[in-house]
Amino acid sequence: MRTGAELDVVELAAGIVLAGAVLALWRKDLRALISVLSLQGAALATVAAVLAVHDGDAGLGVVAGVVLLAKGLVIPGLLARVVRADPGSRETAPLVNVPASLITAAVLVVVSYLVAGHLTALFPGPLTRLAPLGLATVLVGFFVLVTRRKAVSQIVGLLLVDNGVALVAFLLTAGVPLLVELGASLDVLLVVVVLQVLATSMRARFGHIDLDQLRELHD
């Protein structure tokens, strides 16, 4: 049904989304993480755009534009401002070191392929075959949330989860309604703004943005 070239592009873009998530585990430089995010945003927008062209769906085209704008430009831009305020800050000592993280990511990808078997069986097709990539992105993003210390890394983890969810949505439903995608994008944007404010005030009050040190607030 779909031409080979279009499918190739979608497959490549979906691969880039997952590769970006794994890249986020590997790189310690916070600026690199932000570049990874904008790469992922662009890949997602590509998926949406290809689907829009193929289906001739103008609404999906607008969604692609919104995704490119929000996830590819605005959110990474906001994060870059946080990082610029604290140059040279790196994810120095993650709770799980990089090699172990990469191995875990491999395990998570296997798990998501096992689980997504049920999803793809519902509506077998060349696109649903890619759904495990989105699921793996969600799991890897969650893993970033669990193991990385800096507030910016946490935001990146959250955005990875969101990107994974968006990818699964594009692939399984072949087009999210415009309204839903707009709402989701707006939510994510809001979360990023809140987290940015939080990170800034954390630095102002405690002199760092290391979440692990917040433990003292317990009790």
Partner: peptide, 25 residues
């Protein structure tokens, strides 16, 4: 068990999610 570490709380959620997925799979 809940010692105030955000990471530990997140890890609970993550572990629960992966466990549910594995059980379902």
């Amino acid at each position: 068990v809940p010692n105030g570490s955000v990471h530990r709380y997140l890890a609970f959620g993550f572990a629960a999610l992966v466990l549910v997925l594995v059980v379902l799979a």
